[in-house]
Design a binder for these strands. Structure first.
Length: 875
RNA sequence: GGGCGCGUAGCUCAGGGGUAGAGCACCCGCCUUACAAGCGGGUGGCCGCAGGUUCGAAACCUGCCGCGCCCACCA
């Protein structure tokens, strides 16, 4: 592509078209790959902490996608937001670091690879731990490469020289370091506790890895004695009951506390205990207590020193001696009820019962509470600090309505179970000696001979929680990146992982960095949904692959569609139609710039000292748009920023300014117009670049001849360019043109058809715009034989048209009478309002003024319409 | 059971005390020399229901009705 602005011979726009050879349609495929490669090889995305110490730092760590997957629309949204933020900051002169990377995604990844193995008829145990982990690494290489390719397609301006992985050596060292510190501070401990257990994955899960769904079950009421009836939805657990509990103040049962009852089917006698946890108002007020298989019962058991009797193994198979031994838990449940029924008195009632059941987030198996020896983080002091950092304003949550969710979680967090009985992950850095000693060595210590390492790995979120500082060189406190870029500026992510990830980064960031928060702002966005607001899911068949859109509409259109829907905190609906609309918008910009370049637009030198009213108007609007867009981006309101730019570019620049500029380009104002046109497109493309980087780069470099828009300065609003008078004039001109167009359309005059007209300007401020008006309305000057068959008085101008006798008087009269009635109603209502004393006394001046203006406008409309009616020829 | 939020044009959503907005869809007419991925014109809404506050309510308050999400150890 050539760059006409480099040619000094074009100053006045003499035949510059020969220099421009942009195709008439924007073809993203011809542009995106080429530009991205150039950007990366030029090092535009590479941060340099030493480059310019005076420049403010701006940093974002990307929420690392799971290596298991591929990027979906949610990622595309998340990345588009971050890219918009960092590209704007680069233009503002910040030193920007946007750190990319991926998450090893413990269970999720292990499950995927195990499924692959299963296709070969193998289990991980056939390979052994070492070979299995090797296999996962191999798979990670393939899958991860695909994700990185997707990020390039989206245009992510990430710093590839800083790419990180939650399980690479720098991150592993960070994990060992913080584990050691927490361990030494007594904030990590090992204990036998009841935890969530997945009988399929065969591992412990944290609370948030359990999803609760309502399920139809049965509530079985079982008579343990004449006086004691208990209810349960998990009948099989009664085999492990070691007590019955009642509320201490419950008069009905007080006399039974301290006695024992016989547990049906087992012959065991179990005590009746009094415990505050029991709600005397629920059911019978008696609760069976199964410490080995229920978290509440576990606590009751601890308070009353009850035995913990496990009746199930790690796969959910009954181990209790007797007829149920060897049965799966779901098989045992009806079997136990049936056995109880053999004595007709025991089962008092069975009724359908809907209740929430916990499922494994990764495989949807029903989770089983299970007592086992696990590692935990003592969260209380950490969570307190994480809550305080938001409470005292060091960290802002955006939008603020999300803050209650955050507090709800950090203020009620249970200790975090961090050990997983998996092979893929950071192995717990604790070693056991031959005599049972436990040691957590330093991060760089050699293993002790004869000692063995704990076989469990850490919850995947443990390493993710370190991400904002492990990616910046921590634990090396002197790391240049850490000093320059921590705390990170903003954390951008979906509200769905506020708990999983954000709160944990807060806890660990504040802890590891001596109270300094990991980010200044948490910017939460919603979920991408389909055009009916439905969640995208494979089962609905409504999943859209971002790559598909990028292929068909371009990365810019994909990004624009997402950002245009990104109202703060709201979910983002997307649809094919909207992607097409975005593609069309990119094409519109393409053609507007093409028009400008064909006509010699340029950005050389300052703006002309004298500009036309039309130029003054567009420059005034431009500076307002700069201010508005800047404000919207500052407050993460991407939807408004996009809307503002869309309407300015299309409705004002293309539909009006370009059309009016055509007239100016043909007369002595050409030179100034070329410069103003260049100015408008220059600023507009810069404002749009963070959102749609490819097309703006391609157009802007062509227009200006500069190397890259990435390093162009972010536009600043210039209040001195505000020109309300010019705006009013152009608005008046727009009303005039629209009214005459309406008349033309109503009268069936074809848009292309030239119509002769005489214009009577009297003293209208539009007097100087006759040429523009004629061009927009396709009006030719009156010639011999001109005969005005229609007269339109509007905006202080009388337009006399020679419609060659085609005028439909009846239709026009009807139309005008309708408008007249509306205007009269307006006058009536507004006058009434202005006559209202209370209104005049209490309404703000601006509102009164607005109503006066409204009244004046309506009165003017009446005059105009009456004049138009009077001017109509008799039918 | 707690928390947050939402019901505005056919669809998706803005707006937020001063007489309703956008995109898409729809209707009519146009290949008008940047763009048919385009241009011009137009139709369409008692802003969920009922009360209240106010000179004025789609907006604020109360109560209903309907919907969504998050959290939760009532067996």
């Amino acid at each position: 592509m050539t760059q006409p602005s480099n040619d000094p011979g074009n100053e006045r726009g003499e035949n510059p078209a020969a220099d421009v050879d942009l195709p008439t349609q924007y073809q993203p495929a011809n542009v995106e790959g080429r530009l991205y490669e150039r950007w990366v090889s030029a090092g535009y995305f590479t941060a340099d902490p030493a480059r310019n110490p005076a420049a403010p730092a701006y940093s974002i760590v990307i929420p690392p996608p799971n290596v298991t997957g591929s990027l979906h629309m949610g990622h595309a949204l998340d990345h588009s937001i971050q890219d918009t933020l960092v590209r704007r900051r680069r233009m503002q002169g910040h030193e920007v670091a946007w750190i990319p990377g991926m998450d090893h995604a413990g269970i999720a990844t292990q499950n995927v690879v195990e499924r692959e193995l299963a296709k070969e008829g193998l289990s991980r145990h056939d390979l052994g731990r070492e070979a299995f982990v090797e296999r996962v690494w191999q798979w990670k290489g393939e899958s991860g490469g695909r994700i990185l390719g997707q990020m390039r397609r989206l245009g992510d301006s990430v710093d590839w020289t800083r790419e990180a992985f939650t399980m690479d050596e720098p991150r592993a060292r960070a994990v060992r370091t913080i584990f050691k510190r927490l361990f030494d501070d007594g904030l990590i401990y090992r204990a036998e506790r009841i935890i969530n257990w997945c009988p399929r994955c065969l591992t412990a899960l944290s609370d948030i890895e359990v999803e609760h769904y309502d399920r139809e079950g049965e509530l079985v009421s079982i008579r343990y004695s004449d006086e004691i009836v208990v209810a349960t939805t998990r009948a099989e657990t009664m085999l492990g009951d070691t007590a019955v509990a009642v509320h201490p103040d419950d008069e009905r049962y007080r006399h039974l506390v301290g006695t024992t009852v016989e547990l049906p089917l087992t012959g065991r006698r179990i005590p009746v205990v009094a415990d505050e946890h029991v709600d005397p108002g629920f059911g019978t007020g008696c609760v069976k207590v199964t410490p080995a298989h229920d978290p509440n019962d576990f606590e009751i058991g601890r308070r009353h020193d009850l035995p913990t009797l496990s009746v199930m193994d790690e796969r959910g198979v009954i181990t209790a001696h007797g007829p149920f031994q060897g049965m799966d838990r779901f098989e045992a449940r009806p079997a136990v009820v049936a056995a109880l029924r053999e004595d007709g008195r025991i089962v008092k009632e069975v009724r359908p019962y809907e209740h929430a059941v916990g499922h494994c987030q990764r495989c949807s198996t029903v989770v089983e509470p299970r007592v086992s020896l696990q590692w935990f983080v003592k969260v209380e002091p950490l969570a307190k600090a994480a809550g305080d950092a938001v409470r005292d304003g060091r960290v802002a949550i955006h939008p603020p309505e999300m803050a209650p969710r955050y507090f709800e979680w950090v203020d009620n967090m249970h200790d975090w179970c961090i050990s997983r009985q998996l092979w893929w992950g950071h192995r717990i850095p604790v070693w056991y000696g031959p005599d049972g000693e436990t040691v957590c060595p330093g991060p760089d210590d050699e293993p002790l001979a004869g000692w063995t390492q704990d076989t469990d790995v850490l919850d995947t979120w443990f390493s993710s929680a370190l991400w904002p500082f492990s990616t910046l060189g921590w634990p090396d406190a002197d790391a240049a990146d850490l000093k320059r870029f921590y705390p990170t500026s903003v954390l951008v992510t979906g509200y769905d992982i506020l708990f999983f990830w954000v709160a944990r980064m807060m806890m660990f960031g504040l802890y590891a960095m001596d109270g300094v928060q990991p980010f200044h702002t948490i910017a939460l966005h919603g979920m991408v949904r389909d055009q009916h607001g439905k969640k995208m899911s494979k089962s609905f068949g409504n999943v859209v692959d971002p790559l598909d859109w990028i292929d068909r509409y371009g990365a810019d259109a994909t990004r624009f569609t997402l950002l245009r829907g990104a109202n703060p905190g709201g979910d983002v609906p997307v649809a094919e139609d909207w992607a097409q609309g975005s593609r069309n918008f990119c094409n519109k910009l393409w053609n507007a710039t093409r028009f400008a370049m064909i006509n010699g637009a340029h950005v050389r030198g300052g703006l002309p000292a004298e500009v036309s009213t039309v130029d003054a108007w567009i420059l005034s609007r431009l500076q307002q748009v700069v201010a508005d867009v800047d404000g919207h981006l500052e407050s993460f309101d991407f939807a408004k920023a996009c809307e503002t730019l869309y309407h300015f570019a299309w409705d004002e620049v293309c539909d009006w300014y370009v059309e009016l500029a055509k007239v100016q380009l043909a007369d002595e104002r050409a030179g100034a117009t070329q410069r103003v046109l260049g100015e408008v497109l220059d600023k507009l493309l810069r404002l749009l670049h963070p959102v749609i980087p490819f097309v703006t780069e391609e157009l802007w470099t062509s227009l200006t001849g500069e190397e890259t828009i990435i390093r162009a300065a972010w536009p600043a609003a210039d209040p001195a360019r505000e020109d309300k008078a010019a705006e009013l004039t152009v608005e008046s001109l727009q009303r005039l043109v629209t009214e005459v167009r309406r008349f033309r359309a109503d009268q069936g005059l074809k848009p292309g058809q030239k119509v002769a007209a005489a214009l009577e300007w009297s003293d209208s401020p539009l007097r100087g715009h006759e040429e523009g008006v004629r061009a927009l309305l396709r009006l030719t000057p009156p010639e011999d034989g001109f005969s005005a068959t229609a007269s339109l008085p509007v905006e202080g101008v009388v337009v006399r048209l020679d419609t060659a006798g085609t005028i439909d008087v009846a239709a026009e009269r009807k139309r005008l009478e309708k408008d007249l009635a509306a205007a009269r109603k307006e006058v009536e209502q507004t006058s009434k309002k202005l006559a209202n004393e209370a209104f005049m006394a209490k309404a703000p001046d601006a509102v009164v003024a607005k109503n006066r203006g409204r009244l004046a406008q309506a009165e003017a409309d009446i005059a105009r319409l009456e004049a138009q009616l009077a001017a109509l020829p008799a039918a």
